[in-house]
Structures are given as structure tokens and as C-alpha cells.
Design a binder for these strands. Sequence first.
DNA 1: TGGGCGCGTTTACGTCGTAAACCACCGGGC
DNA 2: GCCCGGTGGTTTACGACGTAAACGCGCCCA
Lengths: 263, 263
Amino acid sequence: MPDTREPDPDVPEERSGAADAMPAGPPSTGRPGLDRRLVVGAAVEFIDEHGIGELTMRRLGARLGVEAMALYRYVPGREQLLDAVVEAVIDGLYGDPDVLLRPDHGWQDYLQRLAHGVRRVALAHPAVFPLIATRPPAAPWVRPPLRSLRWLESFLDALTSSGFSDGAAVEAYRAYTSFLLGHLLLEVSQRGVPITAEDEPGGSSEMSVDLREYPHLDRLQPMLAQDESAAEFEEALENLLERLGGLLRARGGRRAGRGSGKA
Amino acid sequence: MPDTREPDPDVPEERSGAADAMPAGPPSTGRPGLDRRLVVGAAVEFIDEHGIGELTMRRLGARLGVEAMALYRYVPGREQLLDAVVEAVIDGLYGDPDVLLRPDHGWQDYLQRLAHGVRRVALAHPAVFPLIATRPPAAPWVRPPLRSLRWLESFLDALTSSGFSDGAAVEAYRAYTSFLLGHLLLEVSQRGVPITAEDEPGGSSEMSVDLREYPHLDRLQPMLAQDESAAEFEEALENLLERLGGLLRARGGRRAGRGSGKA
DNA sequence: TGGGCGCGTTTACGTCGTAAACCACCGGGC
DNA sequence: GCCCGGTGGTTTACGACGTAAACGCGCCCA
């Protein structure tokens, strides 16, 4: 427990490079020359800036200096564009040097790195993350927020190769995904995504509901308003890992797929 | 641990009455005579049947035998209608006799009942639940899935009156909400909400991606496809309660708001 | 030189949310 | 009895959306 205080390393500003999504394809021609990656990348940026509700084929076209219909050369429709957006965003994990595909330092390290990686993409694209959570998964057993066969495979490999039985690995996968989803969804929505409607300027936007009938709430409001997400995340993750450790000890080395010991 | 197997009591069919949302107002007049509750209730049903994407003012009007614009007498717009929908759905908790506003049998019982109550509404309205999760909360400290000041107050009261310190209660609230959100969102999305597009009839709808390159996945697919959500939920809830118990023992009776002992 | 074709534009259709005007009815004061 | 405001639903209309279809431009290879 490295006493994670002060400068949350998962928050975008705190990190130098890495873990972005879609810089560009070939930087050959200047403006024209569209590209699927370019379109999807622009959509990601647009959503990050204005929210999903504002994303429109015409507006996205405009941002790329092009008419709306041009986008249909690269994307079958708006719905599939959104799918491509979530895929692109989680694929940001592959570019993250702190996330490992294989458990080179044990399964706990693997899960830690993966969790923080996912948290990093969630915080980097707060407006996209709810999409990751709610878009129906291709297969029911591929769950958010890691909606990728490759990551699922990596996960299962990491755990089974660390001594988890098949059943324990599957159970761990379920617990892990729902932990990540719950925490990150709340954290992201707490950082007030884009304030949906345009808030009128001038005047304190405090609607400040009447808390007179809610004494505890009234008293605890400052405490509730504090952002403890980083510490929360760390603690819940720690707890989850312990729980999974128990799972490993209980029904672990029951003829695991590969070596039954540690990596 | 009551060995919750076989007949999941939170799934709608397994329960007789209670915990529905919006039966009707005054059953006086027959067809005409709209009503805000009626409008919102119809919206809930509509979403449950066809999904949010299909909900349209005109269609909802049609279902009520009325033109779209008539709805605007009772609801300011589509967006606010959706807000009203989530409010109506979580208000279903108040009608649930198994959920208590006060911890009459200890805080663990209180949290258990509340969690199962929320799970029940999630399973009763699977298509509405993502809305509960993603709609921006009024205040940042009112979190999904309990988006209600009254429930938040009830929660805080239950814990502090059971010996939790203010800080511990707030921490518990955070852990509890993110646990609920993660588990229920995944469970609901797993029960394949409405299959978005109309799936073509005839022919096995198995798109069956190629799993040759994913050996673990290939091997574990049947296990992954099994629905273990009820047991999962129970176990994670149990674990959470233990964790909160530890929290209570560690920093519990530090001058709690009310009586520092048990209720 | 020409002809196709990759890539973006134009035009057009149906649907959406919703503002505004409209109207039909109904209960109460004169 | 008669008018009259108000309640509750309809009609009409507008602008924006997603997207099908037809259209053109310009480049590359023959």
C-alpha cells in the first residue's frame, strides 16, 4: 500500500505521454484525405469536448471540413461510429506502457496495472466512458469495461497461469469487471461530465435544494462533496485483490491450464 | 449465508405482488383524462418493452391514444420525461415491503434489504436501469443508483445510528453505491436488454466469432456464458458488509451523531 | 487521350422535438 | 339563458437529424 496521496497519477494532467487515442494516420497530405481512424478520432475528441448528445454527423463532418455524407465512406452509420469510438478508446490500453499483456510480475501486479490503465482511459475520456458501459456487448460474456476478446483472453491467461483454476479465473473476471465498472462510472459521472444543457451565465448556479428535512445530509454534505475517488479506488481494488487471493488459496491449484505454480 | 440457490427471489416472475411502478391514479374516467403519473408510467412500460432508443414523443402519445403535443401539458420535454422515468422507477422502492427506511434489525439487515430492493427494480426494468446509472445526478454527492435525497438520508441515518462515525458512513455510502451500480449494470446488460436492432428471423443468429486464437476463452466460453449473477451478487454483498463491519470496528463509535451503540 | 473510379457534394425524404396558434368543451357568475 | 375564461387536446409549422441516392470532380493507368 504505497500511501497514494496528493498527486493522483491516473488523472490525465499528471502524466506526460502515452495512453492517448488516435494521434493520426499517415501525416502525408494536409487537410483533405479522410481516413477511418481520423474520423473515429475526431468523434472521440468531439465527445470529450461536447458530450455524446451533441455529436451529430453534420457537426462531425464540419469539424473535419467536410459534409456529413462524406463520413459514410468510412463508417456505416452513427450507431457503428459510436461502437468504433468505444473500441478506439479501450484500444488506448495497448499503447499504455504501464499496462502489461502478460503477468510478468505476478497476477496482483497485472490486475493493478490493468485497473489503473482502465481508470486512466476513463478519466481521459469521461464523456465516452458511459458509452463503454452501456453499449450492448457483442457477446454476453464479454463485459464492459474491457470489451475486447484480446483483453479477456489476456486476463484469463494471466490468472490461470498464476495458479487460478478455471472456475476461479472466471469468478475473478466477473468480480473484477463489475468492480471497475461501478467505481469508474461513478467517478466519471462525479467529475460532472459536460453539464448537459448550457448553464446560464451569471448568478451562482447553486440550486441548493432545501436540506432542512435531511439533517445528516445537511451535516455531511461537505464530506460527501469531497472527491475521494482515488483513495476509494485504491482501497476497493486492494480489497478485491485480497478477496481473489482467498479464492486462489481456496480452490486455486486444481489442475490449472498451465503451470500450477506462479509465473 | 442462506444458501441462495435455485429460485432467485429478486427476479420479477418469482415474486407475487409489490414493487411495481405506477398502477394508475384515480380509476374514475375510462380512456381520456391524462395525468402526469399516467404519462410517466406509460413511458416506463414503453421503455421496458422497446428500449429507450425507440421512445418517441409521438409514439408515446400514440400509446396513450393522444397526439404527441398533448404530453407537453404534463412534462416539459423529452429529457425531463426521462428524468421523471428514473425517479418513478426508484420510487418503486417505497412500495417495496421488504425494504426498510430504518434499520429495525441492524445495519447489515438494512443494507441487505436495500440492495435486494434495488436489484429487484433493476431486474424489473432492465432497459431503464442504464438510464438510472448515466443520467447526470442533480448534485454530485447524490449518486446512482439511489438518486434520492430521502434514501441518502435514510442510509446515513441507518449507519450513524448503528455506531458508524460520520466519516465511516460516508465511506460506506460510496462503497455501497459503486458496488450496486457495477453489479446491477452488468447483470442487466447481460440479460441482453432488447437486442437493439431487429434480428433477422431464420438462420441461427450465432455470429460466433472465431475463437481459435483465444484458447482460454474458447475453453471457458461455456463457463463464462453461465449466468451466476445472483450468487455473484450475494457474495460481493456479503464481502462488502464484512468490509464495512471492519470499518465500523476500526473507526466506529467516534462520537456518532446519535446513540453510539446499536439501534 | 480516354475512361473508370475513389471521394466528396447535392439533393431529397421521413422522423424527430417542440413552439405557437387553434379549438372544443365545460362550469360558474350575471 | 348567456357569455367567458380556462383546461386539455389538436393542427400546423419549423429546424435539425440520420441517411439513401444521384451526381460530379480529378487522378491514375492504359
